[in-house]
């Protein structure tokens, strides 16, 4: 009897994202069973494990950086994962949250909590447990080295499957026409 092949540890997280990329990941449907023959999930919303093991093989990051906690989590992933993958428009160029970048953060908070229509006695949240928002939303490659990118909003299940199977087979991931989308 041969010893079972060691499974690759995969960690995933959503930073300033909408979990759409994670939903799309689940869209690989029954191929998840095939995938689970080769990988096991570490820190991920799918397992509810809160911190990365120090020996993760692949980290998959959805979403960009809009607050201090996002930066902290991203650095934890980079430190613990051999390969880091940015998944989706927000991780790659900031995406929808980055469309606040031409506005002053103070002006946004002011409008959302004080001066917007229908607000009375509003208060800008200031609980010390809340992570501080960043002045601008940044894509993750502006803070850590990112090894691979899966563009799309979200990338299709097929695109995610293609990249993961390419990586598992030791190939450079490549998305051709039809799988490569920025939207």
């Amino acid at each position: 009897m041969t010893a079972p092949k060691k499974k690759l540890k995969v960690a995933t997280t959503s930073l300033a994202g909408c979990f759409g990329c994670h939903m799309s990941f689940l869209d690989i449907d029954e191929r998840l069973f095939t995938l689970l023959e080769h990988i096991e999930f570490d820190r991920s919303p799918l397992t509810d494990i809160k911190t990365c093991s120090p020996d993760c093989d692949i980290g998959i990051i959805e979403g960009g950086l809009c607050n201090a906690e996002n930066v902290h989590v991203l650095r934890e992933f980079r430190k613990n994962c051999k390969i880091l993958i940015a998944i989706g428009a927000c991780a790659i160029n900031g995406g929808l949250p980055a469309q606040r970048n031409h506005l002053q953060l103070t002006a946004i908070l002011e409008e959302v909590y004080h001066s917007g229509p229908g607000l009375a006695n509003g208060m800008i949240p200031n609980d010390p447990e809340l992570p501080l928002p960043l002045n601008k939303v940044h894509p993750i490659h502006e803070v850590v080295k990112v090894d691979f990118f899966i563009p799309g909003c979200p990338p299709s299940g097929d695109a995610i499957w293609k990249v993961l199977t390419d990586l598992l087979a030791g190939r450079e991931p490549e998305l051709g026409h039809g799988l490569m989308h920025y939207d």
Binding site: N93, H138, E174
Partner: peptide, 30 residues
Amino acid sequence: HFCPSCEKSGHCQLQATAYHLGMMSPHFDH
């Protein structure tokens, strides 16, 4: 260039050229 909210997405020559060239990320700081 936020493709998901752009009406030109799918008809855009810049986007299509980036696909053609295999541009997986913007690489530089925005």
